[in-house]
Design a protein around this nucleic acid. Sequence first.
DNA 1: CTGAAAGCGCTTACAG
DNA 2: CTGAAAGCGCTTACAG
Lengths: 341, 341
Amino acid sequence: MRRAVSGSAGIRDVARAAGVSVATASRVMARADYPVAEPTRQRVLAAARALSFVPNALARGLARARTETIGVVVPWLANPYYAGMTEAIDGAARDRGLTMLLGLTGGDERRRESIIDELIGRRVDGIVICAGTDDHLAGRAPDALGVPAVLIGAQANAGFPMVQTDNRRAGYEAARHLWSLGHRSCLYLTGLPTWHDFHARGEGMRAFLAEAGAPAALEVCDGLLDEADAYRFVREACAEGISATAIVASTDRHALGALAALSDAGHEVPGRISVMGFDDYVSSGYLRPALTTMQIPAAQMGRRAIGLLVERIEGRAVSDETLFDATLIARASTGPAPHAG
Amino acid sequence: MRRAVSGSAGIRDVARAAGVSVATASRVMARADYPVAEPTRQRVLAAARALSFVPNALARGLARARTETIGVVVPWLANPYYAGMTEAIDGAARDRGLTMLLGLTGGDERRRESIIDELIGRRVDGIVICAGTDDHLAGRAPDALGVPAVLIGAQANAGFPMVQTDNRRAGYEAARHLWSLGHRSCLYLTGLPTWHDFHARGEGMRAFLAEAGAPAALEVCDGLLDEADAYRFVREACAEGISATAIVASTDRHALGALAALSDAGHEVPGRISVMGFDDYVSSGYLRPALTTMQIPAAQMGRRAIGLLVERIEGRAVSDETLFDATLIARASTGPAPHAG
DNA sequence: CTGAAAGCGCTTACAG
DNA sequence: CTGAAAGCGCTTACAG
């Protein structure tokens, strides 16, 4: 019905130019380890080069039922945490010859579902989902998805392999750090309660403080979406008189807002009040005072996710869940509590 | 030879379930505006839903010679400028029903070329290239690419449509801002000389200063890749005695490094020295002192690029080159020059 | 080592 | 409004 009109040469053209059948041409283009006579191979290769043949990945994918493509779904790129993770995922995928199809959800669950359908429609070989606020995945079971999938940073989700940071422990360590500096009253600034990463961090802090015998030492303010929210909240808190000697922000973004607010309120950090965050963006070390933070190994997590995914794709599922640890990066924004000084 | 083993239903299954031919089933799934009897359409739709049919985009793309896919090539995501631009591009593409295939070059031209080949192999309908350091594109001509392409932030490149910021003018305005504050000696911290965006900014500054009668007022230090490089350089400069009263950084990242170095050297900003950058990351307004910067409309540029690309894809090329203007966002990091105060 | 042919899952001119 | 069939550009068992 239609004829090839596209300028690009097809395997048929290559075959003709090399004087072989398309089967043979295909065999040399498809894989290096096919049994083809060396001179034949060379002729085909030369023809392909001469015609600057680029195999049609659609046709290949259709025929092979394998697209060498993985879907990656992420909330945003605006957050350095996700940007870094996405970069790491892309790098790891590329190293294995896989191309990344990126879907940005904007934190909208409905959009996420449609993105996943889209990816399945494009027949990706697997999917990595960087979860955030919720991960019921509209009730999708791992098998119902039709393709292997691995979750990053999600709470336990029916049967999906996962890679995570031990957020509870990270929170625990954060509280311990502050406690050891003499802080006995902390304010935790966090996002929506449904973001379980953040929630787990808070739980970890609470656990430490309870063990330390000061269960009431933690005050939580949630619902803060970004630096602007954190800024406003802390600014008001300062105006009303802030009693905590330390602020823990659920991300470095929140910490940045808090830092700005404290500066504008004339509260010295860490002299009057200490501040710490979670994530460790590259920029955090260049703030002044430099930000103390619990570093989350986003790049490692991304790479590990690809590792798990490829295991699944190749049908050799070994590992299942991977837990990473956050690392305390102590910098200038945390110091001895004023009354302890 | 092979049978469909995959769990997902195909158009054939839908047709069978609905009691129609695959042709008819395809027609209702493919487009809403096909002439199909309403009851028939309903039966097909019901069958599709019941079987949770997701059309195979590979087969469709092969048959239609259109994939509803665009390739986007970007150096990194680690830089908020590119992250924001990529997000905007993705959003604009999604709004038009196009899926983004993202390729990260890491600033490596060879990798960029292989990514472009990869994208062409996947038969994207068009390509957006966020250029950086070089854009000879290995000598590729617009037509030789085989698909429509538009460049963002590249210097004039044989025939490709482009969207850009008027960097020269942005530099000019930056210099004017500083000059009006009494600064007569500026230091420009920048990346590799091959990054023409940065180079143009420097040229613009130089042009203003020449007009102002102080052509020697600009000192340039290039080769600074990130905040770490900027930090080191400024730290040393401070140690040796810095004579400039203002530092202009080619990006906010560089400015961040400079700010940290000045703080560590005990140089007050803007009392002793003013600092400004280019880009305007969301975080820049939360630095203390808040960073004065020339805001580059990255999101708008990304959206415009998609607009241009779609025009090309649909064969109605109207606009060709688009120039955006940077906007001065004056904040606390720039102030009157010390001797002018 | 090589070729002829069926098949991957859709779409769409062509005929009713 | 609907169906039978060719075609999109590859791959790969099957037979030499």
